[in-house]
Design a protein around this nucleic acid. Structure first.
Length: 950
DNA sequence: GAGTTTGAAACT
DNA sequence: CAGTTTCAAACTC
């Protein structure tokens, strides 16, 4: 397929990759109808389906290691936590609107309108349209007067900008300043106002024209008069253009355009289509760059829109229609959902063809399912609005939404421009907006989170996310320059034992007592980690390779701190222009070990796409593995191997493939490369036959590895194959799977097979008729799916710690009858955990206090020694104590401190080594503080207790 | 290494 | 959900 499908964070995407496709469904408000509608759309567009469409509906499939591209999801800034102060605008999404006519100051006056999902804060330089502040603090200009709904802002340099303020209950707050009369609206960028960013917007070509239709009156379906806005300047554009002649008399006083607008609004011959080409930095609507998705200036609509039905994504293969900015008088919709010309107050309605996108919240663009319900525009297929057929989109700027401009490309292709829209009655037409990341804006993808347009739930979730304010979110910029949202503490805390908290706690535990194995690390986190890892794989910087554990050899034994983080997104604080992608998402920070004796620890900063919103994962590995014996069914050491599940792997692989191989044509190539990689892996393994230890971390599907320039997190985390270190699992300190499977009848496609169960490809196994390899990926995927059908949790870890600090427990419990749970037949025993009440075993002897059972770790730190069945109740107190000091705030603060260091160093272009060192130092300091505090607290509490007792 | 035992997974 | 079968690892010799 020509279009890229992005399932994961766009950060990982190459700069050259187009922005993820957006479907209108993505913008729709979560409604029960969506799914159905979506499905319909998919069906309609099935021809364009990449073949992955069937998977869309099945969330579980995400985990599958399927070559298919399931989701055409564009993640846009979802789940991102923005730095309040930081500029969250993605450069790629940013569109600069330069008003014409102004006297260009030295600096090109570019007004950026930001439509950021969940991005609340607008940088000082940014102009908020809508209720939000228009004039940034930097702008010297002041609001001189207000015309009706328009506010005239005079910039310091004398430029005047008219901004229509949102009127409560109305769709005011138009980003575009216009003459009150409804004539030409001219945006004059105040000097202070720097940029208008369209997060999901349509790309404006440098030369492209932006046509603004100003309906004579609100609710007029068809803009009575189209107004062409000149002066839209691509980010890169420098030349200013004179205001369009077509524009009605502009009342706006702003005579001076900022600078010669590079962005040109081109009106097509018929006047319907406006092409906007982006000069280098501008956004492209089409997923593929250079495929004609970009709107080329000129009459002919250059951009094509593709609809990817299967995924629900519609790629706009057809020429991009005009972008019409309509400033309609607010009209209330009968139903909020239905897009009519009138938009609900505070909402922005974007109309394209017969489709409308309603931007309900500031950052949300919603497509009203019922295009034609109220507004005539909705169904106008080409007829009424020439643009409809041509893909003309009207954009209404709501009031306070803060969303200013939206580029919308109609999907002409998938649905015949006119007929399709009309034919599809009430179901919203699944036009999809392909947002192409501008080359300049590399970081944008990072912020965008992918959501499967096809999957209704996913859409809803995405919407929900979008709807949600980003206020709570914290976005940290990683060293790579990517924005890394911090996990919500809710997500982190509960499982912090595994995640960041685990890491944080580890040092403490080590200091206070014996280092506790983080064997309880939960699979979910690992999944996220793996997913992220996979996603980030391609981004890994070559430079970081040096620190790669795989290569480390001797280094592996050293205490190691690995910090992986995504890169590529712009810094939150930095202006859009400065955003630069960095190749490596995952970076490992090898701490100059403060103490050589400290256990190896790997910290991973990972942004996960998990629904829970966990963005960061900090995994501590390197806990001395206590268990040397391989565990049956893949349970080894502290962490069962099943943490590494095909689910995550598959999904990762899948995603990676999608990312790395935007085009399926590359798939085979990837496979070939992957195979070669496998061979290469095998070779060393064989050479190292004595240990014959596989890395505990699930071997990544080869396909995933193919494109990754840098090693994925897994690879990074992998202990060196050589030496005892090899046996240590980075994540859990587990020994790697000691044996290879010997399956003879299951073809290694059932959970009988440890390899399969662990999400690994068979490698160096003695199995027969093995299908657990890339050669039979289809079968493998089918098997995975089958397993998931039977048991959605089939690939989830069997042994987890319910809570941080909890002892690991078998989720299902064993069912032993004859072994007394004292042989490795017993999964509990094999995992070296005592049986619990969950178990159905008979004659269980796998109780507490078994010397051979390793119950250390946090439990040990807390004084908990194992958790027998009857003592499960005691866990709580221990947990409480464990959590006492590692509160969410503490953890988050620690993480933030570390990240802040990274950010700071990055800004200062400091050497990575220094950054690593300081980050580790920061961590150490934080831990020391925590420990100190904890000690004081304990002392105090003891004193209090003694007093009380006395 | 062959055979047995065992219990999870798969199936009915 | 329970019973049975299948399966591969664990175990024994």
């Amino acid at each position: 397929m020509s279009t890229y499908r992005v399932e994961y964070l766009s950060d990982s995407l190459d700069d050259t990759e187009p922005l993820p496709e957006l479907s209108f469904e993505d913008f729709l408000e979560p409604t029960s109808e969506k799914s159905s509608q979506h499905m319909e759309i998919d069906a309609l567009d099935s021809e364009e389906d990449d073949g992955g469409g069937d998977e869309l509906a099945d969330p579980a499939n995400d985990s599958l290691n399927t070559p298919q591209f399931k989701k055409n999801v564009v993640n846009i800034l979802e789940d991102k936590r923005l730095n309040p102060s930081g500029v969250t605008v993605l450069k790629s999404h940013a569109i600069k609107v330069v008003t014409a006519g102004g006297t260009p100051p030295a600096n090109a006056q570019v007004t950026d309108v930001k439509i950021l999902n969940k991005f609340k804060p607008v940088p000082s330089n940014t102009l908020k349209i809508g209720s939000t502040t228009i004039a940034t603090k930097s702008t010297p200009g002041t609001i001189t007067k207000t015309l009706s709904n328009l506010t005239q802002i005079k910039t310091k340099d004398g430029q005047v900008i008219f901004v229509q303020k949102s009127v409560p209950g109305t769709q005011s707050g138009t980003a575009v300043a216009g003459s009150p009369s409804g004539g030409i609206r001219r945006l004059v960028a105040p000097s202070g106002i720097q940029k208008a960013v369209l997060s999901k917007g349509v790309t404006l070509a440098s030369t492209g024209l932006v046509k603004a239709a100003v309906p004579a009156k609100a609710s007029t379906p068809v803009p009575a008069t189209a107004i062409t806005l000149k002066g839209i300047q691509p980010l890169a554009g420098s030349s200013a253009k004179a205001p369009l002649s077509s524009t009605p008399a502009s009342t706006s006083a702003s005579s001076s355009l900022a600078q010669p607008a590079k962005i040109q609004v081109v009106r097509t011959a018929d006047g319907k289509i406006i092409k906007i080409n982006q000069a280098g930095s501008s956004l492209l609507l089409n997923a593929k760059q250079g495929t004609g998705t970009t709107v080329t200036p000129g009459a002919s609509a250059a951009s094509s829109v593709k609809l990817s039905p299967s995924t629900g994504n519609v790629v706009l293969s057809k020429p991009v229609g005009q972008v019409v900015v309509r400033t309609e008088t607010p009209v209330k919709q009968a139903s909020g959902s239905v897009a009519s010309t009138s938009t609900t107050p505070g909402k922005m309605l974007v109309q394209s063809g017969g489709k409308q996108i309603l931007v309900s919240s500031k950052n949300i663009i919603k497509l009203s399912p019922n295009a034609g319900a109220t507004s005539s525009n909705t169904h106008t297929t080409g007829g009424q609005t020439p643009s409809a057929s041509s893909g003309l989109h009207a954009i209404q700027l709501p009031g306070k939404g803060g969303v200013q401009y939206v580029r919308v490309l109609t999907n002409n292709k998938s649905a015949p421009a006119t007929s399709a829209t009309a034919s599809v009655p009430k179901t919203m037409q699944t036009q999809k907006i392909t947002v192409v990341r501008s080359p300049a804006a590399k970081s944008a993808p990072a912020t965008a989170t992918t959501t499967s347009a096809a999957a209704a739930p996913a859409v809803a979730a995405s919407k929900a996310n979008i709807a949600m304010g980003s206020t709570n979110k914290i976005v940290m910029r990683t060293m790579g320059g990517s924005i890394v949202p911090l996990p919500s503490m809710q997500t982190l805390v509960p499982k912090r034992a595994l995640g960041a908290s685990t890491n944080a706690s580890k040092p403490v535990s080590a200091a206070s007592s014996s280092a506790t194995a983080s064997g309880s690390q939960e699979s979910p986190r690992k999944h996220r980690l793996t997913d992220l890892n996979m996603q980030l794989k391609q981004l890994a910087s070559a430079s970081s390779d040096a620190s790669d554990s795989s290569d480390a050899g001797p280094e592996a034994k050293k205490p190691r701190y690995v910090i992986t983080m995504q890169q590529g997104s712009q810094k939150a604080s930095q202006p859009v222009q400065k955003l630069v992608n960095r190749p490596a998402n995952v970076q490992r920070v090898v701490s100059s070990s403060t103490s050589p004796n400290t256990p190896k620890k790997i910290y991973n900063f990972v942004q996960s796409t998990g629904t829970n919103g966990v963005k960061y994962m900090i995994c501590n590995s390197g806990v001395p593995q206590s268990s040397t014996s391989a565990m049956r069914r893949g349970y080894t050491g502290y962490v069962d191997n099943k943490l590494r599940r095909p689910l995550s792997i598959s999904s990762q692989q899948h995603r990676l493939k999608q990312i790395s191989t935007p085009q399926q044509s590359k798939h085979q190539q990837l496979q070939a490369q992957a195979k070669q990689r496998i061979r290469q892996q095998q070779l060393p393994t064989e050479q190292n036959a004595p240990t014959k230890v596989e890395p505990k971390l699930p071997t990544l599907p080869t396909g995933l590895k193919a494109n990754a320039p840098a090693k994925p997190l897994f690879d990074i985390l992998k202990p060196p194959a050589t030496g005892a270190a090899a046996a240590v699992d980075a994540l859990g300190g587990m020994t790697s799977r000691r044996k290879h499977c010997n399956c003879s009848k299951s073809q290694c496609l059932k959970l009988y097979c440890d390899c399969f169960a662990n999400g690994e490809f068979c490698q160096d196994c003695t199995c027969k008729d093995c299908f657990n390899n890339l050669d039979y990926e289809v079968e493998r995927e089918r098997a995975i799916r089958s397993c998931l059908d039977r048991n959605p949790s089939a690939f989830k870890p069997k042994i987890t710690a319910p809570n941080s600090g909890d002892m690991r427990l078998h989720n299902k419990g064993c069912n032993c009858k004859r072994s007394g749970c004292l042989k490795n037949y017993c999964e509990c025993y094999e995992a070296k955990i005592p049986c619990t009440s969950i178990c159905k075993c008979v004659g269980c002897r796998n109780m507490e206090d078994r010397p051979d059972v390793d119950m250390d770790s946090l439990d040990g730190l807390m004084g908990a020694k194992g958790l027998p069945k009857d003592k499960a109740s005691n866990k709580q107190s221990n947990e409480n104590r464990a959590n006492m000091y590692f509160t969410d705030d503490v953890i988050e603060a620690t993480i933030m401190c570390m990240i802040s260091r990274i950010v700071m160093h990055e800004k200062q272009n400091m050497p990575v080594e220094d950054t690593e060192r300081e980050v580790m130092e920061e961590l150490g300091e934080s831990l020391n503080q925590i420990i100190t505090f904890a000690k004081k607290k304990d002392d105090t509490s003891h004193l209090d207790e003694s007093k009380t007792t006395s």
